[in-house]
């Protein structure tokens, strides 16, 4: 083989080998479920799974960006709830739909940006800054609504949950768009390049003229913005915005990201992997429901799959070297 071709192959494997590992895990899981339940492999169930995966998977995109920079964002679930109730109350007060949506997204972006500033300007560890935001955003959401859910929205707004584009649920289409854009941003743009560089070696990035503070803040802002987008979809789906929505979503999002091969140390990871990770979790939950497995055993299975997936991923990574 010509050396060029060997290089190309190496390149392909090093870029996609790990996702292929996770993807084959997803396929294997699906095969098992297909064998066990006649209801699993139907068009309606697959769309059902995709729809159920949308919210966590969109939150997980933001998480992937943050984790690639070597950080973590524990506030995504609370920010989701906060954006949701602000948008919902705007809708109920008769604010035009685009403005209401913008208010929800704006709240998400603002919370994320505050996280970013606390981390970059305030020099707080991301874990602490976002832990604080997790509580502040949750509390503000509860205070804002006096603890009560806000529900009942127009059909126009509910389109996000009930609408279809070419027979595919609108929320799934939105999710696909988010992933396409995120993939492009990470692979092809300056922002993406800098995101990896900051996570790979923050000091080297700084010394190479990367505006580390600005870009890190931007990345946390993106995570907040995507929580806001997820809030729109969740609120439409439940026809209700709850101040207690999104609890533990941060952990699901982290799990999806890590299963997808993103290193918690930063500098590495892809959104394609994260999508597969989010789908693995959704397929697993769906399959366990279809099979009527008790909720206690479900938790054991899900936890075990997370551990096994990451173990396999690490083994593949070691072999990759």
């Amino acid at each position: 083989m010509r050396p060029g071709r060997i290089a190309l192959r190496q390149n392909f494997l090093s870029h996609y080998g790990r996702q292929l590992g996770t993807l084959s895990g997803l396929v294997a899981l699906s095969l098992v479920l297909w064998a066990l339940s006649p209801h699993f492999l139907t068009v309606s169930n697959l769309l059902n799974i995709a729809e159920q995966a949308t919210i966590i998977s969109i939150v997980a995109v933001g998480m992937t960006f943050v984790i690639i920079t070597g950080g973590i964002d524990l506030s995504v679930g609370s920010v989701l709830a906060f954006s949701g109730v602000v948008m919902a109350s705007a809708l109920q007060r008769g604010v035009p739909l685009p403005l209401a949506l913008a208010s929800g997204l704006g709240v998400g972006l603002a919370c994320g940006a505050v996280n970013g500033l606390l981390i970059t300007v305030g020099r707080l560890p991301p874990f602490i800054a976002t832990l604080g935001m997790m509580s502040v955003a949750r509390g503000t959401a509860l205070m804002f609504t006096e603890g009560r859910p806000i529900s009942g929205f127009s059909e126009n707004f509910r389109w996000f949950a009930t609408g279809e584009v070419l027979r595919v649920p609108a929320s799934v289409v939105i999710m696909i768009c988010v992933y396409a854009v995120a993939h492009f941003v990470l692979r092809r743009t300056k922002l993406g390049r800098y995101t990896y560089a900051i996570g790979g070696n923050e000091e080297a990035a700084l010394l190479s003229g990367v505006g580390v503070r600005a870009y890190k803040t931007l990345v946390y802002g993106i995570a907040g913005l995507l929580s806001g987008l997820a809030a729109i979809l969740l609120t439409a789906r439940l026809n209700s915005a709850q101040p207690i929505a999104g609890m533990m979503y941060e952990l699901d999002a982290i799990a999806a990201t890590v299963i997808g091969g993103t290193s918690l140390l930063g500098g590495e990871g892809t959104v394609a992997g994260t999508l597969v990770g989010a789908l693995i979790m959704a397929v697993l939950r769906n399959g366990l429901n279809l099979l009527g497995v008790s909720s206690f055993i479900q938790q054991i299975v899900i936890g075990s799959v997370i551990i096994v997936a990451v173990l396999i991923d690490m083994a593949l990574k070691r072999r990759g070297k």
Binding site: L33, S37, L291
Partner: peptide, 23 residues
């Protein structure tokens, strides 16, 4: 590794499947 995962999953599902099945 894949095979091990597959096997582990099948075993889990089989053992959990009480009450499931049926169309």
């Amino acid at each position: 590794l894949m095979l091990t995962l597959l096997l582990a999953l099948s075993v889990t599902f089989m053992s959990c499947q009480r009450g499931g099945g049926g169309a």
